[in-house]
Each structure stands twice: as C-alpha cells, then as structure tokens.
Nucleic acid binder design. Structure first.
Lengths: 239, 239
DNA sequence: CGAAAATTTGACCGCTATCAATACCGGTGG
DNA sequence: CCACCGGTATTGATAGCGGTCAAATTTTCG
C-alpha cells in the first residue's frame, strides 16, 4: 500500500493533546513531526496488525475504532481492549519484536504510523517525549489492572455498567455526548471483553432498560441515569 | 530506615541478567551501577509501597516474594500479580506520579531502589537500557493480557493449572525445581488473583490431588503430572 | 501454649452458561 | 422498491459451575 500523498504534521494535528506530550518548545514540537512516518487507512473488519507480525511501529488512532484481541491455539478468544481516536495501539509488540495480539478496525479508521526506532531515537533527545512514552505504557498497565478487577470480582451487571460508564467518559473527553453513544462492537465482543457470554450481555442490557437506566436500540445506547449505573458498580461493598 | 552500609553494584549482581540489559560495554555497565540508589529490606507482611504513595522509584526484587493488589473504596480487593526475585515492581506509578496499588512482601524481602529520574536520565545515554525499560513495560502489558484471557475465559481448574505451571516455570528459570514449589501466598490470595473464592481454590487443589496430578501439603506443592496439568489448560478447544 | 488465621469439606443456592427458537436489521440483488 | 439473506440480537428453558454459609480441623505465630 503506497503512502498517502499529503504531508503529515503532528504539530498541527487536532489530536496532539491526546497523543503527544504537552508544553513542548517550538523546536521540540517540530522535531516530533518526524515521528509519524505515514498514515494508514484500515477498512472496517480489517486488521491493523495480527498476532505474530513483526513489530515495527506504534500507531496513534486518528479516526475510527479498534479492538485488540488474543486468539489462542486452542480456540479461546479474548478481547483485551477497545481503542478510539487519540489512543495508542501496538504496545504489546515491544517486548518480543512481534505483535502478540490482533488489532481489528471496528469501523473505517485511519492511524498515524510511528516507527518505534524513531520513537526511541527522539525520546533520547526530547525528555518530554521520553516521559510521555513511559506514561503511555504505564497507563496501559494501570488500565489493565482495572480490567483485572472487573473480571476478577464483579458480577455481570457491574461489569456492563462499568463498561458503559468508561466508554461514555472517554467519548465525552473527545467532545461527544455524556449520555449517548453508538456501540461499534457486537454483543459478543462486549461479552468477550467482559468475560461474559453474549446472551448475558443482551439480558443485562434488557434489565438495565427495564430499570430505566438506559435506552437501547441495537447499538444505540442512551444513558438515562448515570448515578444509577454508578451505584450498581459501587453497590457491592459486601465482600 | 537508614540505608544499608554495603556497596551496591549491579555489575556484580548475580541477578543482573534478569533485571539489566545484556551485552553492555564495560563502560555502560559501570554507568548502570548508578542506577541503584540503595537497597531496602521489607519484612513479611509489610508494604514496599501503598496505593497513593508518591512514585519515586522502580524496585528490582533481590530476594523474597511480593504480591501487588488494588483495594477499592467499596471494599473490593484484587491481587494483580505475584513477583519474585529479578522482577521489577512499581510500573503502575509512572503514569500518575503516585502508586495505584499496594506491594506487599509475602516473605522477608530485599529490593534494589532505582530512582526513576535516574532511570530516565541513564536511558537517554544508554540505548540498551532504554530499550530494556520499554521491554519491561511491554512485557507487563503482555502478561496482563494473559491474565485477562485467564479471567475472561477459563474455568476454575484451568485457572489453577495455568497458575501452577506459570509459577514453577518462573521458579525453574531461577534454578529451582521444575516440580516442587512452596506457595508464599494464601488460598485467598490465589483466589483473588484467579478470580475465584478461596473455597474453590481449595476444592480444586483437592481435585488435582485425587486425580494424581499434584501432591499438596499445605503450601508445599509437588507436581506429579505436568503434562496432565497442561492438558487441562488446553482442553477447552470447545468454543 | 493459646488465640487467631488458614485450610478443608459439606450442603445448598444463585448466577451465568448453554441450548434453542425467534426476531430484527442492514445490505444486496432481482 | 421490495424480497431475501446472513449476521446480530433478544428471549426462554434448563443445567451446572462456582459462590455462599457453616462447621471442623490444622497451622501459625505472638
């Protein structure tokens, strides 16, 4: 796939506060324009990378929505995360020079390709970038701790409520509604992420609707009672 | 607690191949001796750090055994990992300048304190160290993907078998037996890590004993049939 | 040595998985 | 435009795994 013709410039990108360090000098900011080698479009359903593929770059999502998932030899499939604009994808590949999961676009997407050797080289020159990279990695570790808590100790309702609240919060940080969202993934993918079967996800949605917490029309979800969802998550002080 | 009097030198440490980059030049290796500011002893049951504590350093475990866990306001408790000699602890603190979990020694332990500003400064000078730090962070992310798979898709027997196999494998890499191990944690801590109740852990151990897979005497475990445990893990190709 | 913690085991229950049938939606082609 | 089709979602009936509660026993540690 040939690189797109247009000029890439992080310093002008309207997502830069999401994926670049803030408070850079002019000079440093211009250096970071070298970070992005090219952009790449990924069609809905296509993979940005697959398990086993050589690790070359990290990817900053410009538009679109991804899932990452691991598929084991024995047929298990676990969605490890959903990523949206401004988030960084590919961190799993650093340790072994190969990717260890699949990254699949759930809608047509575009990413900035940041070759990892450039990231490392620039990090040595620009401490703010170095720190930023460390924080991105650490943030992912902390996020996964939260998922472990969810998978290890929450019941189905708590998991789904947590999931919905997390999604709207991230969407809201990107300028979308606090109460309305469109799910880009199937019930099965939600279930895989939450450690539930798709039927359980569907039933739990239905229960939320009965209780007046949300409206659900297929993948369109409107949150009617944020506090109610929060109280579901925090209700289980009983352990 | 005053720093111990003896001289700290990574270049002589017999764990260096576990926690330092390999293939360094003499000069670089000597530089890395600056990495460890001091050592610190942690008594069994004491915390190396607590949730909310300011993040200053990463810790390389010299001796002993730790658990990391998150404790939420609403009383949930999730063990996020068990760490042994040569492993690095504290990565969760980088992103927010505060630790987000507790690190508790499960037996008397000693750690090397590596102030993070020194790590960052040296990383800029020694590319091999920079790469090493990135790999440590990425490895933790990949490890947690595995835990998500376990928590999201495995049944109790599979979880415990996976856990035991992982523990002996890591111990074996440190020169211990492939088949014998002493659990440093309680059934409840194992259960928390595996998303199970302590009674389920105990029952599953008993079932393994009945089936002749292991011998269990309190915390002493001898693996009698490694292949049998493996087949439990991989048995569920049925999804 | 004695109190507290940890472990094991039993009985029972409830949540979620499983199996199955139906409904719905979006896209395609007649 | 509408009928059709495959993937997706909902809902019901049932079963089983693991949770909960409880009690007995062992171990640990001050």
């Amino acid at each position: 796939m040939p690189p797109p013709p247009y000029k890439v410039a992080c310093s002008n990108c309207n997502l830069r506060e999401l994926c670049l360090p803030s408070g850079l000098s002019e000079a440093d900011a211009r250096k970071l324009d070298e970070l992005v080698a090219t952009r790449r479009k990924v069609k809905r359903g296509a993979a940005l990378f697959n398990n086993g593929a050589p690790f070359m770059a990290l990817y900053a999502i410009r538009t679109g929505f991804f899932k990452t998932c691991i598929l084991t030899e024995d047929g298990r499939n676990q969605v490890t995360g959903f990523q949206m604009a401004g988030e960084i994808i590919g961190l799993d590949g650093i340790v072994g020079d190969r990717h260890t999961c699949d990254a699949i676009a759930l809608e047509d997407a575009e990413v900035c390709v940041m070759p990892f050797d450039r990231i490392e080289a620039l990090s040595r020159e620009v401490p703010a970038l170095q720190s930023h990279v460390h924080k991105i990695l650490s943030r992912e570790i902390v996020r996964e701790h939260g998922v472990m808590l969810l998978l290890g100790s929450m019941r189905a309702e708590e998991r789904l409520a947590t999931f919905l609240l997390n999604l709207v919060q991230r969407l809201h940080a990107r300028g979308f509604s606090q109460s309305e969202l469109v799910l880009r993934m199937t019930r099965e993918e939600i279930g895989s992420y939450l450690g539930l079967k798709l039927e359980t996800v569907s039933r739990t949605f239905s229960r939320f609707v009965e209780e007046g917490l949300v409206q659900v029309k297929q993948r369109h979800v409107r949150i009617l009672n944020t506090a109610g969802l929060r109280s579901i998550v925090n209700a289980s002080a009983c352990r």
